[in-house]
């Protein structure tokens, strides 16, 4: 009798939890980004963001230490003579390397801003505080939000190139969907005038695809940038000319059958730390002969 009750209770708990999960999944898919579940998610993110930012800051020495270990492994051969000295100044070195990385990132960012004509008031700097743990959803959370002028669909870049777009904004944080996310698609141009759509390859952020290629023949090594236009009369959310990556592989079979080539993106998605949100719509030339969607 007791056993039957236990079994019944166990099954009921499982059924309720699975049912709730499925209801949330279905509801989340069915509603728009302004729907109640999305709003609830935004509210929880707002509540959690100070805790997450604090935790992220607390973990930064460990991250720097992990990065330091990576650097040491790479330079092992050259560092033999300096090992003793290095051990004594290890903690100073960790801090110095972190600062140097930040500095290099900011310098690159400045170069990119000058190239794209982004003024000081056209963009806000942000730091990545959360990363999605699965390879299937490439999202990160950054420490700027509505209060900093960030809005949904604004482009996000690093000094290397395009990173993604803002998909949800809270008071002090925003979610960035990276161009490596399964839902991402960016209209792009190759520097010889060919055009297409950049789409991700799930799980391998360093191997993206340029699909639906139109125009002149493309070659390995050519640079791919945002096209600045989308389908029909729709305007692209990405301004024209943001570097995306370099053509890394062109197979004649793939090109013939699928009209696609491989791209290695410029941005390093694994070690994303500092990013910039372009908050102002930049002036860009119109392109009436758009080929991509």
């Amino acid at each position: 009798m007791y056993d039957k009750q236990v079994v019944r209770r166990r099954r009921a708990v499982l059924a309720v939890l699975v049912g709730l999960s499925i209801i949330m999944l279905t509801g989340y898919f069915g509603e728009s980004t302004g729907g109640p579940l999305h709003r609830f998610q935004g509210g929880v993110q707002t509540i959690l963001s100070p805790i997450e930012a604090g935790a992220s800051r607390a973990f930064s020495p460990i991250r720097n230490l992990a990065g330091w270990f990576g650097d040491v492994f790479d330079a092992k051969g050259q560092n033999k003579d300096l090992k003793k000295q290095l051990a004594a100044t290890r903690s100073e070195l960790v801090a110095a390397q972190a600062a140097a990385r930040d500095d290099a990132g900011l310098r690159k960012q400045l170069g990119m801003n000058q190239k794209l004509g982004i003024g000081q008031t056209d963009a806000v700097q942000a730091r990545v505080i959360l990363k999605s743990p699965t390879a299937w959803y490439s999202t990160v959370q950054i420490d700027v939000g509505r209060g900093d002028g960030v809005k949904v669909n604004q482009p996000v870049v690093t000094g290397d190139g395009l990173v993604g777009k803002i998909t949800s904004v809270n008071g002090g944080t925003s979610t960035v969907t990276l161009i490596t996310d399964s839902s991402s698609s960016v209209s792009a141009m190759v520097d010889n005038g060919a055009s297409g759509q950049v789409q991700p390859s799930i799980g391998d952020p360093n191997d993206m695809r340029l699909q639906y290629i139109k125009g002149p023949a493309i070659k390995v090594g050519q640079t791919v940038t945002t096209a600045g236009w989308a389908s029909g009369k729709l305007e692209s959310i990405f301004p024209r000319g943001i570097p995306i990556g370099r053509i890394s592989k062109v197979s004649s079979n793939e090109l013939k059958l699928y009209k696609q080539a491989h791209i290695t993106p410029f941005a390093d998605f694994k070690t994303l730390d500092q990013v910039e949100v372009i908050t102002t719509r930049l002036k860009q030339p119109t392109n009436p002969g758009s080929a991509g969607p």
């Binding site: 949330m24 509801g27 989340y28 998610q41 929880v44």
Partner: peptide, 25 residues
């Protein structure tokens, strides 16, 4: 185990802004 799994998944989905219900399921 099931209750903690549901709560952990729900909080994970809420925190990182991914499809609600996926991790909890």
């Amino acid at each position: 185990g099931a209750i903690v799994g549901f709560a952990t998944g729900l909080l994970l989905d809420l925190a990182i802004g991914q499809t609600l219900g996926l991790s909890s399921l």
